[in-house]
């Protein structure tokens, strides 16, 4: 049943995110085209008196803005959409369909996490591809800096992979925190929902402080960067398991569809 749940999550993701990816890559290609035709933003300022150059500058500005906004939003969008979808599927009218399927609460959560992580990886890949396409532009300093950080030969592969794992674990942690927040707020309207939000916010702050202390302790204890990051990943994993168990318990015993 888990496989079937994941299949239908993927169908939703393909329908929803393919247009966003296409627009993002198209804007990256447009930036690249500006470079190929020898267009330079700084140089254009000197030629601003020329109406054609002035118009091209405006278009270039919007293309850069679209590309930058989409690149920035994509990571947040994948997480926010996954949590929104979890809430809609489990705790709104769609819950009458989802919660009566012959699957367990654990399978529901696992399917959403798998879909969310796949979406995160796809977004990461598309983001990187877009950066690669657009980074040749001599005027996109930020894009070049990010691309050069990714391809820096002085940083070891193990460090890069550990950083990716850490980003991945942080993503899953925030995703589960989102599930926990919507689950707690759905248990009752009004007061307990507000309390759920307070608990969620407190957990986030406490969790961040605890994790930063773990990282500091690891570094002070002489552990290298990679072991320190792995230690933080382990702590995040434990945090995720606890949140997953709480969310499962809420779905099994405290569902409150109106």
């Amino acid at each position: 049943m888990l496989r079937k749940l994941v299949k239908h999550e993927y169908i939703y993701l393909i329908k929803t995110f393919t247009p966003i990816y296409i627009i993002y890559l198209a804007s990256a290609a447009a930036l690249r085209l500006f470079t190929l035709f020898g267009y330079d933003f700084i140089d254009s300022a000197a030629k601003a008196a020329n109406p054609v150059i002035y118009s091209m500058t405006i278009i270039y500005f919007f293309v850069v803005a679209a590309f930058t906004i989409l690149a920035s939003v994509m990571a947040i969008l994948t997480m926010a959409d996954n949590v929104r979808r979890f809430k809609n599927n489990m705790f709104t009218d769609e819950g009458y369909l989802t919660n009566t399927l012959p699957v367990t609460a654990t399978e529901h959560i696992a399917a959403k996490l798998i879909a969310g992580c796949t979406n995160f990886l796809c977004s990461f890949a598309v983001l990187t591809l877009g950066l690669f396409i657009a980074s040749r532009s001599s005027t996109s300093f930020i894009l070049k800096a990010i691309w050069e950080a990714i391809t820096d030969p002085d940083v070891e592969i193990s460090e890069k992979l550990t950083i990716i794992l850490l980003i991945f674990m942080v993503y899953i942690t925030f995703q589960l925190l989102g599930y926990l927040a919507v689950s707690l707020s759905s248990m009752a309207n009004g007061g307990r929902g507000f309390l759920g939000g307070i608990v969620g916010a407190f957990s986030t702050v406490f969790g961040l402080i605890f994790i930063s202390r773990v990282a500091a302790f690891s570094v002070a204890g002489g552990l290298g960067a990679v072991p320190s990051m792995l230690m933080v990943c382990l702590v995040l994993l434990v945090f995720c398991v606890i949140m997953g168990l709480i969310v499962t318990m809420i779905i099994k015993n405290h569902l409150n569809l109106q």
Binding site: M1, T16, D93, E94, Y96, L97, T100, L101, V103, T104
Partner: peptide
């Protein structure tokens, strides 16, 4: 009541539950 009983029960709620997308 659990996943096994849900496989043999067909439920029609009074609300619309089909995802609009």
């Amino acid at each position: 009541i659990g996943a096994q009983t849900k496989a043999i029960v067909s439920y029609l709620p009074e609300r619309t539950y089909i995802p609009s997308w």
